[in-house]
Design a binder for these strands. Structure first.
Lengths: 216, 216
DNA sequence: TAGATTGTTAATCGATTAACAATC
DNA sequence: TAGATTGTTAATCGATTAACAATC
């Protein structure tokens, strides 16, 4: 009875956007086919890993020729549900929220932010990067009129759970969490947490090791 | 002769900031010891994984009592080189750059941004979140006067390699790359790339699976 | 045909999980 | 002493890598 929203090839799925962006560029230059070794080189990985990844999206290639670019693009977009664009709302139009509104790359990946919400009166009724910003107090009311698949959460951590509860009650099934709060949600709601600290930790650890090893 | 800056317990290192933040909160409430099961619960993982992670930072605990919080904090900070704070510069004070300047969390983790650079004349000579912003043209000149361990790269992707070359020539050994460009650097320079698209792909894939599985 | 590239099957590697003895 | 928790050793699991046959 447990609803399993575990994805079973997580590392592969995480690489899909990288492939997609390379493929779109190749396609724009008129290329029709690409080999696993060429994709591998541009991704900074090895060819066999590319072939394994392509297995997931069920595209077959031709020996000596490679894989059909158009089909790879289509299957990746289909796998990720990026064929039709996804309507999203953004909650918290501060510095971080604004930088996401400004991010063109996410747009090209099928993300369309229909509205923003903020409780700073200076931001309300204005439009940031073409997206209208409404009063957070109207969140529940306006969500009812929109068909929203995803909420992007950029509020201060202390409000995160509170806003999440409203989103969940309004039927939002996906929450992209940019706050430091861990959210509790029903099992049929999917959350994805973004956090800079793991990457910063890896960078710091490497830098520390580099310095000490250079000292000998 | 190869200089290896590979970190061998990457998943563990990525979890260290999570532990650190929990431990600092516990320490602030006056707690002296914590068990692996308590840490595990707050991290959303299982206790044995916590004990394995603690192995890396070489803290030993006491049966029935747990691990000494102060020592855990000290060893994590030491492992990551976060004891002394790290001087950084930020290149590109646009929306994204400003949101990093505004991020208090990174400050508490030992990151101190000494200066920002931008070539938008409106931003120069002003101060964003207490950090002075200089003309990008003065990057090379000013880097010579500073002792910089890390550069945070938030410029448009097309300028990324160009700026990187300047940074490398100025002796910067760590680059935190928020652009979509893949950077080429000498082997003694460490880069860490941040990218929202893998997380977005995972979220999208799960949402797509959820919807289709709910339809039956 | 020759040779490059795919695709399959097996091996390796590392991370997570399990089992349980040691310890306070 | 009893029982909770650590720490060690082994098992499992999944991702990556290797080897090589199949194919165009």
């Amino acid at each position: 009875m447990k609803r399993h929203t575990k994805i079973d090839k997580l590392p592969t799925v995480r690489r899909l956007p990288g492939y997609l962006s390379i493929l779109q560029k190749l396609s724009a230059t008129g290329e029709m086919f690409v080999s696993s070794s060429k994709l591998a080189e541009k991704m900074g990985i090895i060819p066999i890993l590319v072939r394994k990844d392509i297995e997931l999206i069920q595209v077959s290639g031709t020996p000596r020729i490679g894989y059909p670019i158009k089909l790879l693009i289509e299957r990746i977009e289909n796998y990720l549900g990026w064929g039709a664009s996804l309507d999203a709302v953004l909650i918290g139009a501060g510095q971080l929220g604004s930088s996401i509104l400004a991010n063109r790359e996410l747009n090209t990946l099928g993300l369309r932010i229909a509205a923003g919400f903020d409780n700073d009166s200076r931001k309300m009724k204005t439009s940031v990067h073409g997206v209208p910003i409404y009063d957070s107090a109207r969140l529940e009311e306006l969500l009812k009129t929109m068909h929203i698949g995803l909420a992007i959460l950029c509020v201060p951590a202390v409000y995160a759970q509170n806003v999440t509860d409203i989103l969940v009650a309004s039927g939002v099934k996906g929450i992209w969490n940019f706050t430091s709060a861990r959210l509790s949600v029903p099992e049929d709601v999917i959350t994805q947490k973004e956090d800079l600290t793991p990457g910063y930790a890896v960078l710091s650890a490497k830098l520390t090791r580099l310095q000490t090893s250079a000292c000998r």
